[in-house]
């Protein structure tokens, strides 16, 4: 299988489209016949990172790089960055505004969900300089 790369622009505060990029990725992987468990893990992680960009970050993009052995998802935004990444990774930690909580976000579970569902996760962030969440998934099984 040749490798495939795609990039989707994602806009801060745009809740009409928030999550669309991850759904595109999910459909792409499905159409390439990746095993359902892997598709689900990639979709969950992409979606959590995409929603974080929309709520906490700034305009940016979600990119996916797919080949037979592994899938890499990069979510990069040019927002305010994360002051303390270790703290942000803790379950239950959230700075979500009330308006986001009313929409069902702000449990402080997004980054822990990414950690749990990816094989490798690297967050690079600096206050004032945006955030890069890199997620790697190995295709241990079959089908492609």
């Amino acid at each position: 299988m040749p490798s495939i790369q795609k990039t989707f622009h994602v806009t801060k505060n745009d809740f009409i489209h928030a999550g669309e990029a991850s759904i595109h990725v999910k459909n792409l992987l499905k159409s390439l016949n990746y095993v359902p468990d892997l598709v689900r893990r990639v979709a969950i992680c992409g979606y959590e990172a995409e929603m974080n960009l929309v709520m906490h970050g700034g305009d940016g993009e979600l990119s996916v790089d797919v080949n037979a052995d592994r899938i890499i998802v990069d979510v990069i935004d040019h927002g305010q960055g994360i002051a303390d990444v270790e703290l942000a990774m803790q379950e239950g930690y959230s700075t979500a505004k009330d308006e986001y909580r009313e929409m069902g976000f702000g449990a402080g579970m997004g980054l822990p969900n990414i950690k749990k569902n990816s094989d490798e996760m690297v967050i690079t962030s600096e206050q004032g300089n945006g955030t890069h969440v890199k997620m790697v998934f190995f295709n241990k099984g079959l089908n492609v």
């Binding site: 809740f15 969950i44 959590e48 929409m103 976000f105 449990a107 579970m109 822990p112 969900n113």
Partner: peptide
């Protein structure tokens, strides 16, 4: 809570919520 829904296996489940949103 959306992240709560994403934190566990959901195949074969029905999702009840009071949030009638795109998300």
């Amino acid at each position: 809570l959306m992240s709560d829904v994403l934190s566990a296996f959901a195949q074969g489940s029905v999702f009840l919520t009071g949030l009638a949103t795109l998300q």
